[in-house]
């Protein structure tokens, strides 16, 4: 990598490698936008094709969905606070806020698993109709991303506890923060297009 290393600015941007890795991660996020767009398109096209299964109107409950949304919104905020602490060189603050973020992420996952199990009990499963296939694949892909993100964050926490803040570890934390905020962006659209519209129409 290019030898020039900046002396100022955020650690994760100081080397050419750091900047290029962050750029590469943005390209990955652009590809994720397209991945989720295909799932949203599938879901939208299959809307209303519930066959003999219950309709979303019957199953969706505003309460649990709002709780999940607030958990994820708050975790996105605490993740931002973690990066803010990282920028101040405060490893302890970074780790604390990251653990809070993780706890909120696990809370979200718990509610989502509960929700899916509940739907399956009510007769709406992956195989029961085209609509529910679209729903479970879309929401499930998001849930899978959150699950991966929590595992990733745990590994990074172990690494930073051992190595402290360097150009490399701060770049890794910066990238997982981008990932986490991005999952919130996707959730906002699932919340709006799937749950809210499902309760309106």
């Amino acid at each position: 990598m290019a030898a020039e290393e900046l002396k100022t600015g955020p650690l994760e941007y100081r080397t050419q490698e750091g900047r290029m890795t962050i750029l590469g991660f943005w390209i990955f996020l652009a590809a994720e936008v397209v991945l989720f767009a295909t799932l949203f398109a599938t879901y939208a096209v299959l809307y209303g094709r519930t066959a003999d299964a219950p309709t979303p109107m019957e199953l969706f409950e505003p309460g649990i969905v709002l709780v999940m949304t607030f958990l994820l919104l708050t975790s996105s905020f605490t993740c931002g606070l973690a990066i803010h602490q990282m920028r101040r060189g405060n490893v302890k603050g970074l780790m604390t806020w990251m653990i809070v973020t993780l706890a909120l992420g696990f809370g979200f996952l718990g509610f989502e698993i509960y929700e899916f199990v509940h739907y399956v009990h009510e007769g709406a499963s992956l195989t029961s109709s085209a609509y529910w296939s679209g729903f479970f694949v879309l929401a499930g892909t998001h849930g899978l991303h959150v699950t991966l993100g929590t595992g990733w964050a745990i590994l990074l926490l172990i690494q930073i506890a051992r190595r402290g803040l360097t150009n490399v570890t701060s770049r890794k934390f910066f990238i997982i923060s981008l990932y986490w905020h991005f999952l919130d962006v996707i959730w906002i659209f699932i919340f709006t297009c799937v749950y809210l519209i499902g309760m309106v129409i």
């Binding site: 600015g9 955020p10 994760e12 941007y13 900047r19 290029m20 962050i22 750029l23 943005w26 390209i27 996020l29 652009a30 590809a31 994720e32 936008v33 397209v34 989720f36 767009a37 295909t38 949203f40 398109a41 599938t42 939208a44 096209v45």
Partner: peptide, 25 residues
């Protein structure tokens, strides 16, 4: 960080493709 090393053109293409996919479908 000098604009955060964001590839604006690719982000634009990602979102444009998303809009075309959903609206087109």
């Amino acid at each position: 960080s000098g604009g955060g090393a964001v590839p604006w053109n690719m982000m634009f293409h990602g979102f444009a493709l998303a809009a075309i996919l959903v609206a087109g479908s």
